[in-house]
Simulated scan of single mutants.
Amino acid sequence: MGLQGNMEAEKLLLGCILMNNSVMKELVIQPEHFSILHRDLFRAMIEISVRGEMINRATLFEKLGSNYMSQLNIGEMMEAVPSASGFTFHEELVLRYWKNIFCRKQEMWFRMRR
């Protein structure tokens, strides 16, 4: 997806995970579906979840370090989400954007090969 993506949907989805870690068990989305800015954050969330630990600011800070964490506003992500129950909608928005970009890239690649 490159540098850009549906950043708002990504933030909302990540906020849902921070609000309710059990959301991780139901997601189908993969790190490559996220923009570069959020890809490592989601990977860290997966690793923390696999270890059976809580995904929160402290565990993310421990995993990602202060330089990376200073680029994100985790509090904003959590505050933007009224309820974690909407995670499937946010996930679908991120996936839909990724699919559209992926299809455009394939189309451009096929045109260039002609």
Rank of each mutant, 00 (worst) to 15 (best):
P31I: 08
L64T: 04
Y97N: 08
I48P: 01
L64K: 14
L60W: 01
V28H: 12
L37F: 13
R43L: 11
R111W: 08
Q4L: 15
R96V: 09
N73E: 13
V28E: 08
F89V: 07
Q71R: 04
E62V: 03
M7H: 09
S85C: 09
R111N: 15
K11D: 00
I36M: 12
N20I: 02
K11V: 01
F110A: 11
G52A: 11
E76D: 06
I17M: 15
R43E: 06
M7I: 06
A9T: 10
I46P: 03
S70I: 10
L27D: 03
W98I: 10
Y97F: 10
S66L: 14
A80F: 04
S22N: 15
Q4V: 04
R114C: 01
R96D: 03
M1C: 13
N67P: 03
L27I: 04
F61C: 07
I74F: 01
I46Q: 15
R57Q: 13
L12C: 02
S70L: 14
Q4Y: 11
S66H: 15
W98R: 12
M45T: 05
L18M: 12
Q30F: 07
V28P: 02
D40L: 04
G75D: 06
V81K: 01
A58M: 13
T88R: 13
W98P: 00
N56A: 07
L12K: 05
M45E: 03
M24K: 09
M1Y: 08
L3Y: 07
S85R: 13
K99F: 15
F89I: 11
L13H: 07
F42T: 03
A58F: 12
M112R: 03
G15A: 14
R57F: 07
Q4W: 10
I29C: 12
L14R: 00
Q30Y: 04
M24C: 09
M54I: 04
L95Y: 05
N67L: 13
L37S: 15
T59Q: 02
H90C: 07
S66E: 15
S35A: 12
N67F: 14
I101H: 11
A80D: 10
P82L: 09
L12G: 00
R114W: 08
G65K: 05
Y68K: 02
A84W: 07
F110S: 14
L41R: 01
E47H: 11
A9R: 12
V81P: 07
K63Q: 15
G75L: 12
L27W: 10
V28W: 11
A44M: 05
F110G: 15
M108G: 03
E32D: 12
L14Y: 03
F89S: 10
P31S: 04
V50Y: 08
I29G: 06
N56S: 10
S49R: 06
L37E: 13
K105S: 14
N56Q: 05
M69F: 13
C16W: 02
S35Y: 14
V81C: 11
L13I: 15
S66G: 13
V50F: 07
E26W: 07
V81Y: 09
N21G: 04
F34R: 05
R43P: 01
M54V: 11
N67Q: 10
L12D: 00
